[in-house]
Amino acid sequence: MKETEDIFLNLINQHKAIIHKISKMYMKDAEEQRDLFQEIVLQLWKAYPGFKGNSKFTTWMYRVCLNTALIYFKKDNRKPDKALLDENIDVIDVNENEGKEEKLTYLYAAVQELNAIEKALVFLFLENQSHREIAENLGISEINARVKLNRTKEKLQFIIKKNGYEF
């Protein structure tokens, strides 16, 4: 068990950027981002016994992370989970992008105006997924993925422009 846990932790720590990025895309508030991050890690751990290595670890991880974010229900009353009370989990530093990654700061702000599926499309696109891979992950046709992605990119451009930024 300990060995499985170590292998799993090693794998998700290598790819924790995926969880960070999805949490930031799906939740605006820093505390909610932490909650979602925590939920994704938990769901990955619960789903891990089902990972048989037939696909790449990241492919499997994309699906579990996105599916969790899509159906995640915000906590009604925020209370810190006991397991985390003694641990300093600096999941998201809200000011981390300040000054150094202006484009991404604007991007994260703009995606908040997109719906859950549009966020998934943008995320997979930025992760260098092809139209076919996006279609496979979302369970839609390749043509549909292409059309939806183009529309979403236009919408994103419009939002960013509307917010007074252009790049």
Binding site: L9, H20, Q38, L42
Partner: peptide, 21 residues
Amino acid sequence: ETPEGSNISTNMLKIKQAHTP
């Protein structure tokens, strides 16, 4: 973009309550 913050540890796997609908 590389995320800052500490690594994910065993404690995070001990949370019992999930929040899917």
